[in-house]
């Protein structure tokens, strides 16, 4: 079964030039006076078109946010917990609304289950500076959302191997020797 498309984008078309533009900014906007003009050179469009397309994609919520993307670990946010639950499908929307009411919750998703190894469908991420504080926050979420009754796991991250933005450019071919 394929993932259902995220609801924020339905009804909006992105064309090839939009994709080219997202590819041109995937490593970030340059730190110079006219960054959109410079991006335009890479995406083969003028500054006005770059701005118009970005405005449209922001309005259509294809771009959920445009701005500074931080490395939370460098800022001391090292206690990063992913908490998962197996919640009945009929209840998941209500439970999720109670989870996202907490402002310390960074992300909240529903994902497909993979029984028997991974029966969980509801995910919540909390980033904090102190593990003990994050554990208290998890307990608060569980209480407020009535989550104690459902099977659950908490997975703190220990090491980061890689973090960067999503890729929209065509991947470079991988050399045969590395396959």
């Amino acid at each position: 079964m394929r993932a259902r498309r995220d609801s924020g984008f339905r009804g909006t078309e992105c064309d090839q030039r939009d994709v080219a533009l997202l590819a041109a900014i995937e490593d970030g906007l340059p730190l110079c006076a006219r960054p959109f003009a410079q991006i335009g050179e890479a995406a083969r469009m003028d500054e006005g078109e770059v701005l118009a397309r970005l405005r449209r994609m922001c309005a259509a919520r294809v771009i959920r946010r445009l701005g500074l993307v931080l490395q939370h670990r460098a800022l001391g946010y090292r206690a990063n917990a992913m908490v998962v639950w197996d919640v009945p499908d009929a209840d998941i929307d209500d439970v999720a609304q109670k989870i996202v009411a907490h402002d310390f919750v960074t992300l909240c998703y529903c994902r497909e289950r993979r029984a028997p190894d991974w029966p969980y469908n509801l995910y919540c991420m909390i980033h904090g500076r102190e593990r003990r504080l994050v554990e208290c926050q998890i307990a608060a979420v569980k209480r407020a959302a009535g989550l104690d009754q459902y099977p659950s796991r908490t997975l703190f991250s220990s090491r980061r191997f890689k973090q960067r933005g999503a890729r929209f450019s065509a991947p470079a071919p991988i050399p045969m020797a590395a396959r």
Binding site: A3, R5, D6, G8, F9, C14, D18, V19, L22, I25, E26, D27, G28, L29, L31, P35, L54, M57, R61, V62, I63, R64, R65, L66, G67, L68, V69, L70, Q71, Q163, R164, G165, A166, F168
Partner: peptide, 12 residues
């Protein structure tokens, strides 16, 4: 990390 865009998942 960068000045950039967070694109909604599974839109593109």
């Amino acid at each position: 990390s960068r000045v950039g865009a967070i694109v909604a998942p599974n839109t593109l």
